[in-house]
Design a protein around this nucleic acid. Structure first.
Length: 986
DNA sequence: GATGTCTGCCCC
DNA sequence: ATTCTGC
DNA sequence: GCAGAATGGGCAGACATC
């Protein structure tokens, strides 16, 4: 096959992301290949020349390829470099350069393969220059598409989206043969020539190693694996020992199936003395031992990994072997005297192992404990950590030897719960600059960052970080650093010359990094570095500190800003469940035409008076909403100029409260006015939120967010938790819909909407609107048991179901979207404003992404939404209170009187409460009260609607049994939350 | 001979 | 090695 | 949950350069 033809296949594969489709294209390619070439095609498309264990190395990679391209296409190395930085892929760069000239391609796949092999074979003095020349002449004689792929091979990054596993699938075979004969080219050849037969592990041919997956819960381990063997995890080199007594054959392979010459580990020359078998393949971990330490029954003190790996060398072996003797911790046997054991249960393999290994200072069989008890696993993990090991590896007792990491067979312990790395503390580091990304990350212009910490007056490098960054975070960090970038290295920085980032940044941005351990470093100017560093989050001053905190628009964003997605899955169920409360509240009013407090009062004053008292306390804080609207307006206008934040907020809040009180004076039917205003503002708010959610900076977070949003099972307890947030969480759940006593407002809204029997009662009118006829008292309306009424009733029920559902849905959408915004905008920055300042912070974001007008729009809508909420609640609560006081006969006065009385009272309290410096505590109490309110009044609703009313009203109003069940479940839900809250508090 | 740079389907 | 992402 | 592709520190070896 011409290489150019292969290149066409590779191009198609590169463009495809579906693995099924990739597999299909690959099998098409193998179909079109001769058996003489299939191995070479497989190797080249994986970017290799031979299986790993044959040790064929090109010794030509990134830097030399840059020189090669410069030579081949007559450019300077700097020109090539700058193109490479842009594309992030040397193959793409090579293709781009080669397009300037026409090169007819004559090479077959075999030609290219052999030329690359020649390049690999060359070594010795002058070989670097020769390799460059050979590679350059190869590239010059290929068409530009072929150049793209050939240039990528030495760099080892084909980026075609497939690897051995996919090739095995494309060949239409299982991986059993490959796993014990991991020469993918040869396997492809055998498949093509129909010679693939069942084989067994062979001395001298590595087996694809079995790897451990990671879990952080021992319970989950037992759940997934049942009975397990618990063993220590050593920090050394994974070594496979192949031994055949005949001819004293000893071969050694690493985890990556690289062969290590026996001379490297001379102690294994005589390994046969310690093995009671003719032929074995052993799986082990080699660890360096401190030779000066006393040996207890042969066992020594382990050295760390950096010491151990010094044994992987060609020179000075004798001296190093004396300084760092190796101990081989054996834990598995795959072949024994000609018999494959890979399909035997693990404990059986171990039993064989114990029979054949003579333990001493060279070989030791790992100790192990067989158990089903998660607690024992936990204890052993702690024990081994204390001993300076890496914890435990937990293995399914009856598991076969399964190559790779598939399935749950071997598991290592992820960090302990409550920790995000094995380092006891995470580190806050200064971002010193960034490097442009390679491959997929090139499009973000940032692939990794250089971080350091302050050391006196200078800032020294500590590590680079590239893992742990989501694509959204790459964008975020890039944007931030662009504002901080510096042409020159800031003078307080100290960095060695191979750690010069592509772009410097002045010290400002701080990120949180975790790692497994701290190591000594010669590369980093601090003299220390991190082992397995990973990015956690951006750190920022905790920002806005005002303690004022409000209902559902604040708490959910607060949680997602602080704890990410941990509780997001709870929002939807918590808001939807309020549907069952709302419809019962509405049902009562639809049947009787009366407000819900009338119903409660009919149950007796000992129940109702305390409940009302709770309700009264609950609504003292209404002013907060007005104050949130005021904040937004002050932020928007910055008027009056000399005012502080607090003063400005108060100024605008008073204006809003006084201005919007006009509605109460002049509206014809107050509820109707409010409803219309609310409709407009809600529509603008929802549209604004949706628009915001579609901004690219937010959109990149949306997929992840909604995956959690729609999955209640994703709820998890965050690893760090502030005790005070228990109350906040309860508050968030209560406020997911309306919350506690707020839900009772449905009764009064239904009343003024004129739903059901409420059609026949009077409505509340504005103070200055003359009543045409004073309806002093609601009569007990008669609801006759007629067929006509029955049909009407069905219509009402439909309406109130629809209305209640619509309300919770809109609530869930708005709360969901604001929470998404908080997750996208605030969480990455580590800001969790504890108050209504969240709107201000969001507005700042919109200014940077949408410009000035985006910010204005956002603040306007936010203030309108907030004040609208205040007006709506003030009206509703005044009616609740009025209904109560009106019905307590001895107080006298009309309903209208009481309504205006309470309206005045609430406006006054609003004016007062917004001046309180610390309303935070009060608000938390209210969240908790709300949950207990549900617990108290849901049974009362049930009694009214399911028992009491059916006795007085026509039989068709009686709810179905299943409706009783839904209400019971709702009650249990809140009861459980209330109980859980009490549990965590006490 | 000492030092610097690059590579390793390195090892973890 | 760890982590994220598309399937 | 899999497979693939981003990314880390630090070691020795090989070659180039001073």
């Amino acid at each position: 096959m011409q290489f150019s033809e292969l290149a066409l296949y590779l191009e198609k594969l590169e463009k495809t992301s579906s693995r099924l489709e990739i597999t299909r294209i690959l099998s098409e390619l193998f179909e079109a290949t001769t058996s003489a070439e299939v191995d070479k095609i497989v190797y080249l498309s994986l970017g290799i020349l031979a299986p790993n264990y044959e040790g064929v190395l090109l010794n030509l990679a990134e830097k030399m390829m840059i020189r090669t391209l410069a030579l081949a296409f007559n450019k300077s190395a700097d020109e090539v470099k700058s193109l490479y930085k842009k594309s992030g892929d040397l193959g793409d760069t090579a293709e781009e350069l080669s397009q300037s000239t026409v090169h007819p391609s004559q090479f077959t796949v075999t030609d290219v393969y052999e030329k690359l092999l020649d390049i690999a074979k060359d070594n010795g003095e002058g070989s670097q220059e020769r390799k460059i020349e050979m590679t350059s002449s190869l590239l010059k004689n290929l068409d530009s598409l072929s150049v793209r792929f050939v240039a990528r091979i030495p760099v080892g990054k084909l980026r075609l989206g497939f690897s051995e596993k996919t090739i095995i699938e494309a060949l239409g075979i299982s991986d059993t043969e490959y796993n014990i004969y991991p020469d993918i080219g040869h396997i492809a050849y055998l498949t093509k020539t129909n010679n693939l037969k069942n084989i067994k592990p062979k001395i001298g041919v590595p087996v694809v190693p079995m790897l451990a997956a990671r879990l952080n819960s021992t319970t989950e381990m037992v759940a997934k694996m049942g009975q397990v063997s618990v063993e220590p995890k050593f920090d050394g080199l994974r070594i496979f020992i192949h031994f055949k007594r005949k001819d004293n054959i000893v071969k050694i392979f690493t985890r990556n199936m690289n062969s290590i010459p026996l001379e490297t580990f001379p102690e294994l020359l005589g390994v046969g003395k310690f093995i009671k078998a003719e032929e074995v393949i052993l799986d082990s971990e080699a660890i360096g031992i401190d030779p000066t330490s006393p040996r207890l029954r042969g066992a020594g003190v382990f050295l760390d990994f950096q010491k151990t790996i010094q044994r992987r060398r060609k020179h000075n072996i004798k001296k190093t072997a004396g300084e760092i003797p190796l101990q081989f911790q054996i834990f598995d046997v795959l072949l024994l005297n000609g018999k494959s054991l890979i399909n035997e249960p693990y404990i059986n393999r171990r039993m064989e192992l114990e029979k054949i290994i003579i333990g001493g200072s060279l070989l030791r069989v790992d100790e192990n404990t067989v158990t089903k008890d998660p607690e024992i696993i936990k204890e052993m993990h702690k024990k081994y950590l204390k001993m300076g090991l890496e914890g435990v590896v937990v293995k399914k007792a009856n598991g076969k030897y399964v190559s790779g990491r598939t399935g749950w067979n071997w598991v290592k312990m992820k960090e302990e719960e409550g920790q995000s790395g094995r380092l006891s503390d995470t580190l806050d580091c200064i971002v010193m600059g960034y490097f442009t990304g390679k491959g997929k990350r090139a499009q973000f212009g940032l692939g990794k960052i250089l971080v350091g910490i302050k050391d006196g007056d200078v800032i020294r490098t500590l590590t680079k970080v590239g893992t742990g960054l989501t694509e959204a975070m790459l964008v975020e960090i890039k944007n931030r650093l662009n504002k901080l970038q510096s042409k020159e290295k800031p003078k307080e920085y100290e960095a060695q010359k191979d750690l010069i980032p592509d772009v410097w940044a002045v010290p400002s941005l701080v990120i949180e990094v975790t790692a497994d351990s701290i190591s000594k470093s010669t590369k980093h100017s601090l003299g220390l570095s991190l082992r397995f560093p990973r990015f956690l989050r951006i750190r920022e001053d905790k920002g806005a500190g005002d303690a004022t905190t409000l209902g559902e628009l604040i708490w959910w964003p607060y949680f997602s800003a602080k704890y990410g997605l941990a509780f997001v899955g709870l929002l939807l169920p918590a808001s939807l469940i309020q549907f069952f409360v709302n419809r019962e509240v509405s049902r009562y009013t639809a049947i009787t035409g009366k407000g819900i407090w009338s119903g409660f009062l009919s149950l007796g004053k000992y129940f109702t008076y305390p409940l009302f008292l709770l309700c009264f306390v609950n609504f003292l804080w209404l002013g907060g909403y007005a104050s949130a609207g005021g904040t937004a307006l002050f932020e928007l206008t910055r008027f009056p100029l000399s005012f502080s934040d607090r003063g400005g907020t108060l100024f605008w809040s008073y204006i809003l409260i006084i201005g919007f009180s006009g509605i109460f004076l002049f509206s014809k039917i107050i509820y109707k006015s409010l409803e219309n205003f609310m409709k407009v503002v809600s529509a603008i708010t929802v549209l604004g939120l949706i628009f915001s959610a579609f901004q690219p900076e937010v959109r990149v977070f949306a997929g992840e967010f909604f995956k959690y949003f729609f999955n209640p099972l994703s709820i998890r307890w965050p690893t760090t938790w502030e005790a005070s947030d228990s109350s906040h969480l309860v508050t968030a759940i209560a406020f997911a819909g309306m919350g506690g006593f707020l839900n009772l407002l449905y009764s009064y809204w239904m009343k003024d909407k004129g739903v059901g029997m409420a059609k026949y009662t009077s409505k509340v009118k504005g103070l200055l609107i003359k009543e045409e006829e004073e309806v002093e008292e609601e009569k007990d309306l008669v609801f006759a048991d007629t067929e006509e009424n029955k049909i009407m009733w069905k219509g009402w029920i439909k309406f109130l179901n629809f209305d209640s559902l619509l309300a919770v849905t809109i609530n869930a959408i708005t709360a969901g979207l604001t929470t998404l915004l908080a997750f996208a905008i605030l969480f990455p920055k580590g800001i969790f404003p504890t108050g209504w300042k969240i709107t201000v912070v969001q507005a700042q974001f919109f200014e940077s992404s949408l410009g000035y007008w985006g910010r204005i729009l956002f603040l306007l809508v936010a203030s309108a939404f907030m004040i609208d909420t205040w007006v709506g609640l003030t009206d509703g609560v005044a009616r609740q209170f009025a209904d109560f006081t009106y019905k307590v006969r001895k107080l006298g006065k009309s309903f209208r009187f009481w309504y205006y009385f309470w309206l005045g009272f609430l406006i006054l309290t609003s004016l007062i409460t917004i001046t309180l410096a610390q309303p935070g505590v009060l608000i938390t109490i209210i969240g908790v009260i709300s949950i207990f309110a549900f617990v108290l009044y849901i049974p009362a609703l049930w009694y009214l609607n399911y028992i009491k009313l059916p006795q007085e009203y026509p039989v068709f109003i009686k709810p179905k049994k299943w409706e009783s069940v839904t209400l019971l479940l709702t009650w249990i839900f809140y009861l459980a939350i209330a109980a859980g809250y009490l549990w965590t508090v006490f």
